[in-house]
Structures are given as structure tokens and as C-alpha cells.
Amino acid sequence: MNAALDMQGLRGELAHDAPLAGMTSWRVGGHAERLYRPADLQDLQAFLQQLPEGEPLLWLGLGSNLLVRDGGVRGTVIALHARLGGLERVGDSGVRAGAGVPGAKLARFTARAGLRGGEFFAGIPGTVGGALAMNAGAFGGETWPVVRRVQTIAHDGTLRWQEPGAFEIGYRHVRALAEGGPFWFVAAEFEFEAGGDPQVLHLQTRELLAHRAASQPTGVASCGSVFRNPPGDYAGRLIEAAGLKGLRLGAAMVAEKHGNFILNAGSASAADIEGLILEVQARVEERFGICLQPEVRVVGEREAGA
């Protein structure tokens, strides 16, 4: 980025050499070369318009499903936690949500509004933006089947609303069908089913979360599920069958409670976690001939000498 970036007219917060470990759910990783927290969508547009063409960008919500390497991230990180948090009802059965809205907040909003079909968002540990980018799911539900349309922003700050038909959607997979420069999700409109009982929906959401707490590790540093489920099977089952629960590398550990979770058991480095991911992959493939595909996104540079 041009060191002479003009912050006049911008209302967000710009930091240099900003630590990222505290902004990720694994609590590991190096620093961002630059970190920007936009004040709102218009401020984000203005900031992007000042960036050099081709400036590397990383978009960060709650920092789940993300492993930042120990050497940090070059370019600019756009932090949306507590930003782009608009949430409103649209018509009888629609909801418009900004990319920075946590999944759990969206689930609570739909329940209070008596809208059925949004309960599963309570089990997504990230934000709407991240859920859109990977078609995140939980409790048997997925993000894109309830999407009406999405709002995207390009590198030059241009905003555009797009329909689901503009994307190839699959299991933990989203790809734009049209060629063009990169863009990112900044909002979405969702379609739910009106007429639900708010109290019943609230209780159903609580029951789903109680089931999750009973079967998955919660309250510890992890990223959620590490691997995608292979066709017709479950990554957690394969990892357990390979005898890998409790396997450690440094302070990174495969959870005893659920094999598809890797925990930071205290002072793990990103290299510990990445190494354990690779070890689990290798052992499961050796045992079953199945190569597990990571669901987690690995970004940044390895530490010098690592």
C-alpha cells in the first residue's frame, strides 16, 4: 500500500503491524501488515478506492474457520467484527443482514420475528460474510438455500446486488460463475418462513445448541470443524476410527470429545496446528484411502526458519 494513504475523509481505524492472534478463534497467528476497521459500508467503499490495484486483501469476521500462519499476513486485512452489522426485516418473510452479523445473532433475530428456517445459524461460529463465502452450515441446514440475493463489493469499491443463480453453490463451496475481478460479500437478503411461534423457535434453537455443547468441544480455542465430511461419511468418524483422538503436536491437540476439532491446548503455534492438520490427513489416508479436505482456510506466511 502507498505509505502516503490519505486518511482524510475516512472514518475507520487503520493500524500497521497489527496482531491477529486475538482476532481468531484459535488464538494463534502473526501480524497483519495493515488492518482496517471500516466505520460503515460507505467508509469501506472510500477506503478501497484509495488502495493500489492488486493490493492483497483478507476479510476477517469472527476469525473462525481461519488459520493465520505465524509469519503474519502481507497486504491489508479488513476487519468486520462489530462492523457492517445491520439487521432488519424485509417484508413478511425476509431479513437483510450485513456481512459482520454473527450467525448466532441472525438466529436469535429470526426466532424473535417468528421466522422459521434460520435456527441453524446459531450453530455457525462465524459471521454472515463468512457463511456466504463457504456456504456454511450446521444442524442439517446450509446458508445458500435461504439466500434471496447478496450484495458484493469489488476492489474499487463498486457495490452490486446479485442473485444466487450467479454462483456455483455446493457443500462448503461457493464460486462466481462470471469472469471478472475479485469481489466480497458485504450483505445478504434471506428468505425464511413466516408464521412461526417465537417462543417455540427460541426453545428449538436452545435445544440445538445444547446438543452441540454435548457433542462438540465448546469454550476452548478451536475453529469449529477442521475437515469437510467426505461423501457418504463423516470426517470425525474417520479420525476417531483411526485412533487419532487426543493426538498432539506441540500444544495443538485433536479433541477427545469430537475428532473433527483441533484445539489450542494452551500455547500452540499456528505451525503446530497446521502440522497436526497434515498429520491427521496423512494417517486417515493411510488407514482408509480417503484424503480429508480441510474446511479451514490457511492464510499468511510461515515464520522465518519454520
Rank of each mutant, 00 (worst) to 15 (best):
V95M: 07
V73F: 05
L106V: 02
S222W: 00
M7H: 04
H81R: 15
R11H: 13
P38C: 10
M253D: 01
V73M: 04
V77Q: 09
F121M: 14
Q45C: 15
A304R: 14
V150E: 01
L292W: 04
L44V: 10
S64D: 06
V226Q: 00
E179D: 15
F288R: 06
M23Y: 07
P56W: 08
G243F: 11
S269P: 01
L238C: 07
E119A: 15
V299P: 04
L66I: 07
L278F: 11
A242M: 08
A270L: 02
W161I: 03
A154G: 13
V146D: 00
I239H: 03
L276Q: 02
G94H: 08
R237A: 14
Q281V: 13
L106T: 01
P38F: 06
D272V: 00
G71Y: 06
E33Y: 09
G250F: 00
E256T: 00
L276N: 02
L263C: 13
V28F: 01
W184E: 05
H31V: 09
P52F: 02
E301T: 09
V28I: 15
H173E: 10
G126L: 02
A282S: 12
R34C: 09
V186P: 02
E189A: 07
Q162F: 00
G232F: 08
Y234N: 05
A271F: 05
A194S: 15
V254E: 01
E193K: 10
L263K: 00
S215A: 11
G22T: 04
E207W: 02
L278D: 12
E256M: 09
G300V: 10
V284I: 07
G12F: 09
V150D: 02
G103K: 00
G71Q: 13
E163N: 05
A18R: 08
G250K: 12
L67M: 10
R212P: 07
F47S: 03
I290V: 15
S25I: 11
G114T: 09
W59Q: 01
L247R: 15
L201R: 00
S269G: 10
V73I: 14
P19Q: 13
Y234C: 08
R248C: 15
S222G: 09
L5A: 04
P230I: 05
Y36Q: 03
C223K: 02
A3N: 11
R212H: 12
L60N: 04
G137A: 09
R89K: 14
T127Y: 09
P19T: 05
N2F: 03
L249E: 01
E163H: 06
Y171D: 12
A138P: 12
